[in-house]
Each structure stands twice: as structure tokens, then as C-alpha cells.
Design a protein around this nucleic acid. Sequence first.
DNA 1: AACTGTGGTATGTTTTGCCTACCTGGTATT
DNA 2: AATACCAGGTAGGCAAAACATACCACAGTT
Lengths: 112, 112
Amino acid sequence: MDSINKKMVQCDVSDIWHVLGRTWSLVILRNLSTNGTIRFNELKRLVSGISSTVLSDRLTELEGHGLVIKKIYQEIPVRVEYSLTKQARELEDVLEELGQWANKWKPKQKKD
Amino acid sequence: MDSINKKMVQCDVSDIWHVLGRTWSLVILRNLSTNGTIRFNELKRLVSGISSTVLSDRLTELEGHGLVIKKIYQEIPVRVEYSLTKQARELEDVLEELGQWANKWKPKQKKD
DNA sequence: AACTGTGGTATGTTTTGCCTACCTGGTATT
DNA sequence: AATACCAGGTAGGCAAAACATACCACAGTT
């Protein structure tokens, strides 16, 4: 039973660590960071391996925590764009450093 | 024709992102960062809410990826100490920034 | 003798992730 | 005209991850 609405935003400090530590969160944020505004299916293709379900779930969660902006354009077909909030954009440097670090220590460079 | 065209930049979804994105990983690394060398149960107490199973699992994984050093002292009772590797120490700045960012946005601002 | 602390592992339950199918409505192909 | 495909997801069911709890052997403390 849902005695507590899941969409309630409870901003605990430990909460944010858990949000970031959730599967795919960092990768999603990093992709939003490097690509700016991006649509759902584009993002899904970029984050190869993620399923619609989880991507949707994660985006909703990130949006709920004020890290991601969801913008719906009532066009035909509908266009939905995601981007980082101001708050999350302050993370971009961190994500960038993280990315550089990851590249530096990549066990083997299969790709370029 | 690539499914990914345009200006999109695909960020590698290398193992390391998944390791960091695993539950508790960031929190564990952060605690190792701020506390230096630390024992299993100490860490378990610090990372409140984590279970032995998952802590053990995560530490093994982090060790396997060269982020954590496990040092066993054959005393009675046995003493096991965990610390960050040189590689992971380069993450300390990032973790610190992440912590500051988390603190900065900690004050609940459901209203926005 | 009973209890605490050490660093975990074994077991079983709950939550999360993920795959497949499907939705609505328009366009492109056949 | 029917089919297929795209958009951005949701629903259902199954698998994996996370979790709680008990427990291991041994030593010191009470």
C-alpha cells in the first residue's frame, strides 16, 4: 500500500547521495551535461543498455529532486525535452572531472 | 548510418560509471575519503543503514576495480582495514565537491 | 557460563531493474 | 488502404540486486 506518495520530494542530504548513487543516474546526468537539451529516445539511445522503464523512472526521480527539467511540447508527435536545472548544472564540473578520471583509468581503451 | 547522429556525444558507459552508480558506492568512497583507513564495522556504523551483506559486496567490487585496498592483519581477533587506492584518491576532490554541492542544496526547498 | 566484539557469510524476503508488449496519433512505405 | 514506424512513455511479469537476520570461530570481559 502506498501510504506515502512516492513522488513526494523529501530532500534529505543523504537522499541526494542515494539519488546520485542510483543505477544510471550519473550516466544520465553526464549525458545531459555534455549534450544539453535532449529528447527521451535520443537519451535512451545514448545511454546504451538502459530500458525505457528505468530511464523514465530515473528521469522522474531526478526531476522530482530538482536536477532535471522536463519540457513537453504539444506538437505532433509530442516532443519532450530534458535538460539540467541550474542546481544540476553546478554538478557539471564534477561530472566532467569524473569523466576525465574515468578515461584516465580506463582499463583498456577499446574505443578511440 | 549511425543511430546516433547529429551533435550527440555518447559518454562511455564504461564499467567504472556503473561501479560508482551502484548503491552505496559513492557514500562508501566518501567515507573512506574523509576517514582514511577504516575497519569494516566502523565503516558499517558510519554508513548508517547499510547491511553487512551489501557493504561486503560493495567493498569487494570496489577492491576489484582498484579503488579500495583491503588489508588484513592476522591478529586475534582479525583486523581488516580498508582505504582508498591512489587511483581513488584522485576522486577525493570530486567527492568533496559533491559533498559541498549536496550541503549547499540541502535546505529543503520544496517550494520553488 | 554468558555476553560483546571482530569480519564477514548463509539464508530468505523485499525492492529494484529490465524485457517485452502495448498505447495514441501522425507520417512513410507498400 | 493497410502496414509499419516514430514519438514518449506505461503495464505486466520475471530476474537480479539489496536488505534483514541469524550465525560462524575465537578472544576478552563480566
